[in-house]
Amino acid sequence: MVSYEIIGVSVLWIFLYGYLIVASIDFGAGFFAFYAKVTKQDHVVNQLIARYLSPVWEVTNVFFVFFFVGIVGFFPETAYYYGTALLVPGSIAIILLAIRGSFYAFENYGSKQSTVYTFLYGATGLLIPASLSVALTLSEGGFIKETNGTVSLQYLELFTSPLSWSIVALAIVSVLFISAAFLSFYAARAKDYPALKLVRNFALFWSTPAIIAAMTTLIFLSQHNERHYESMLDLWWMFGLSVGFFMIAIWLLYRGKLYGIAFVSIMLQYLFAFFGYGIGHYPYLLDPYISIHESATHESMGIALVIAFIGGLLLLVPSLILLMRLFLFNADYVKGKK
């Protein structure tokens, strides 16, 4: 029998992974829309981006809400440590998210094209992943101190740590890479060849920084948290698979075919890397203060949450399939005929 806290943390990690993918597509698309506007190519891609994003941005946001509500639910201690330490970076992330979400709506539904909105939309697309990635850095330990019952964040250490900067870099380039690969797939389905050419070039371009950033992060992690690094080495095969899928994706993108499979490969690349990283993190949620087993909520609550989760999935999965069939996999809609 698997314990409920393991189920809980797995579910949360899966959702965080889901957020990583859907949010990357969204964030990166914002940046590309801005870039295209500045370089006067917006007529080529922005229609494509708008058609995908309009119906789904709110759903993306809920993935994130799910994660932070879930983690406090399953592991209330996280509210105490992370809540106190993250007041400033967390508030900044909230503000950026708020600007992004609402300005998107103002521009799109408000039928007003404004460069300021597009700029903010593009800039926040890169700043949000950077600020959210701070939470991952903190989880490695060494940045949060508890003295005499007060928790505080060591800002100096955080800002001078090569690990934290490499994680920020990894987050940003991954966003651009994942997003460009998805847009290539979407453009190919829409048979929008000028747009495809542009976004495919983006995808190929950002693949190199993505893999370099991943390697750098690994090196700095080995210096910062030896234990985590060692457990990740034990999972070497997961990272091997990750690199393998990366190669497949690049090759397909380069050859310019099977964009769907290329994107799925990238999803698998991140899946294996993300889970290799996560499993290596076990048993700590915050090294060394919060470990999964000690900080879990009461059993009755844990079980109630798991049941609620299953019930929720039964409701959501059919709805999500409907959404995707209507918008993502409906050829006429994608092509802009509906």
Partner: peptide, 17 residues
């Protein structure tokens, strides 16, 4: 945390539709 958690599903449902 149970109602807070279930609330998220309500949002999900609302957002999708």
């Amino acid at each position: 945390s149970l109602p807070l958690f279930m609330e998220v599903f309500a949002f999900f449902f609302e957002a999708i539709f």
